[in-house]
Amino acid sequence: MIDTILVATDGSEGGSTAEKAGVHLAARLRVRLSGVTVVEDGDVQPPPDSGLALPPYPEAELSAYFHARSQGLASRFADRARAEGIEATCDVGRGRADDRIVEKAQDSELLVIGRDGCRANQSRALVGSVTESVIRKLSKSSIVIPSGSSLSGPIVVAFDGSSGSRVAAAKAIELSNSLGETIHVFVDSKDKGRAVARFEEVRELLAGVQQPLRETSSTLGRPDVKLVDTATEIRAGMIVMGAYGRNRKTDFFLGSNAAAVVRTSPVPVLLAR
C-alpha cells in the first residue's frame, strides 16, 4: 500500500514536472510526502589541473551557489505542496545524487523522479542519466516522469504472467480505485492460447477494481513498442509494469522491456517492485 511518496528534483524541467506530479498524486491519494535534492560533488570539486597554470579554483563559491540553489528548490517544493494542502519538506543532500536518492527512498513506498534531468543525454533519453542509475539500484516502486507529462488519464497495466507483472496489477488496483481511473490491460504473447490464459489470470487479479476494464493484446512486433503505442493512443496517465520481466536473470537489475519503455514512453511509467 502506498502511504509515503518521495519526490526527487534537480531544478531541471524534468525535475519540476516530477515535483508537480508527485505533489498532485500525494494530494489525491492523501498520503505523506517528502522531497530530496542533491548537491553533486562533481559540480563543486576541482577537476585535475593537468599541470596547467590556472587561477585558484572557486570551490567555496560554487559550493555556496549550489547549496543556495538547492535550498531554493526545497522551498519551491514545500510551497507547491502547501498549495495542495500538504505539509512537506525537502532534504538537501551532498554527494552522488543517485546514491543519496536511493538512501532517502528507503523510507518511502514510492519514488517520483523526472526522466529528463539536468544530466540526461537528450539524444539517448534515459541512458547514462542519474535517473537510470537510481531505478536500477532502487528496491522500491518508482514513477519515472517525462518532461511536460501528467498522471491524468487511464492506467495501462502490462501483464506477462511474471511475478513482477502481478505486483504491477496490485499497484494498479490501488491507484485505479483511489484516482477513479479506468484500467487498460495490455498482454503481449506470440502464442494466442497463452494470451487467453494471461487475460484470464489478470482478470482474477484485478477483480477488486471498481472501474471497467479494457483489454488489448499484441502478437506481432516488439512488446515495448506496442505497449508505448497503446498508452499513447488512449492518452494514458501512466503505464504500470513490473520492474523485472520473465527474463530477470539475463538483465542487470532492470528488465529489458521495462528499460526500453522508460526510455521511449511519453507517458509516465510506474515500475512496480
Score class of each variant (00 low, 15 high):
62 L>R: 11
24 H>E: 15
111 L>F: 11
82 R>S: 14
23 V>C: 11
246 R>C: 04
222 R>A: 14
236 A>V: 00
135 I>S: 00
47 P>T: 13
83 A>N: 12
211 Q>V: 02
46 P>W: 06
88 A>K: 11
210 Q>C: 08
87 E>T: 15
46 P>E: 11
44 V>A: 07
267 V>E: 06
156 V>A: 04
267 V>F: 07
104 K>P: 04
249 K>Q: 09
89 T>D: 15
91 D>L: 14
36 V>G: 07
265 S>D: 05
249 K>M: 13
153 G>A: 06
90 C>T: 04
180 G>I: 01
40 E>H: 13
50 S>M: 14
272 A>H: 01
178 S>N: 14
257 N>Y: 00
150 S>R: 11
135 I>F: 01
210 Q>K: 15
207 A>N: 07
235 R>F: 06
23 V>F: 02
244 Y>R: 10
226 K>S: 14
273 R>S: 03
16 S>W: 10
15 G>P: 13
83 A>E: 14
76 R>S: 15
184 H>E: 07
81 A>F: 08
161 G>V: 03
202 V>W: 03
212 P>E: 00
158 A>S: 11
146 P>S: 03
81 A>Y: 06
78 A>W: 05
242 G>V: 05
172 A>T: 05
51 G>P: 12
241 M>H: 02
18 A>V: 10
151 L>Q: 05
168 A>V: 07
98 D>V: 06
16 S>V: 10
22 G>H: 04
181 E>H: 04
127 V>S: 15
263 R>P: 08
141 S>M: 01
222 R>C: 10
30 R>A: 09
26 A>Q: 00
51 G>V: 11
150 S>A: 10
231 A>C: 07
11 G>D: 08
267 V>G: 07
49 D>M: 11
104 K>F: 09
79 D>C: 06
164 G>Q: 00
13 E>R: 11
239 I>D: 04
177 N>H: 06
98 D>E: 12
29 L>N: 05
137 K>A: 13
204 E>M: 05
52 L>I: 06
259 A>C: 04
108 S>Y: 05
205 L>F: 03
264 T>I: 07
183 I>G: 00
30 R>V: 06
253 F>I: 02
10 D>L: 07
133 S>R: 10
160 D>K: 00
164 G>K: 01
156 V>E: 05
221 G>L: 09
191 D>P: 04
118 C>S: 14
